Amino acid sequence: MSAGLLRNSFKGAASAAPFFPTLLDQIPNAIVIFEADSQQLVYVNPAAESALDLSRKSLEGHNFHDLFGDNLQLGEMIHEVKSGQAPAQRQELLLHSLPGSIHQETIPAHVVIALMDDSDLMLMEWFPIDQQLRTERDERVTQQVEANKELMRNLAHEIKNPLGGIRGAAQLLEFELPEKGLREYTQVIIKESDRLQTLVDRLLAPHRKAHVMEYFNVHEALERVRSLVLAEFPKGLKIVRNYDTSLPDILGDREQLIQAVLNIAHNAAQALSVEIEAGVAQIELRTRVARSVTIAKQRYKLALDLDVIDNGPGIPADIRERIFFPLVSGREGGSGLGLTLAQTFVQQHQGSIACDSKPGCTHFHIQIPYRRQEKSE
Rank of each mutant, 00 (worst) to 15 (best):
S58H: 03
S335K: 08
S55P: 12
S97E: 03
N29L: 09
I250K: 11
Q343I: 14
R167N: 08
Q187L: 06
D307R: 15
L251F: 11
E146V: 06
T245E: 14
V200E: 02
Q298P: 11
H219C: 00
F68H: 01
S376I: 15
N311F: 05
A14L: 03
L339I: 05
Q350K: 12
V212C: 15
M124K: 01
Q367W: 05
S227V: 15
E146G: 06
E76G: 10
P18R: 00
L304T: 01
V274H: 13
Q348E: 01
S329Q: 01
A278H: 09
L6H: 07
D310M: 02
V188N: 04
L41T: 03
A354C: 09
E105C: 14
N161E: 15
E232N: 15
A170V: 09
L41F: 01
D37H: 06
H65D: 12
I166N: 05
V261S: 03
T340C: 03
I239G: 06
S55Q: 08
I78T: 08
V293T: 06
A221T: 13
E150D: 09
S292Q: 12
S352Q: 12
A265N: 07
L285K: 05
M77T: 04
S329T: 03
I319R: 10
A147G: 04
D201W: 05
M122T: 00
T22N: 10
V240M: 15
Q373K: 07
Q373V: 08
K235P: 06
P248Y: 07
Q270Y: 10
V145M: 12
P206G: 01
N311Q: 13
V261I: 15
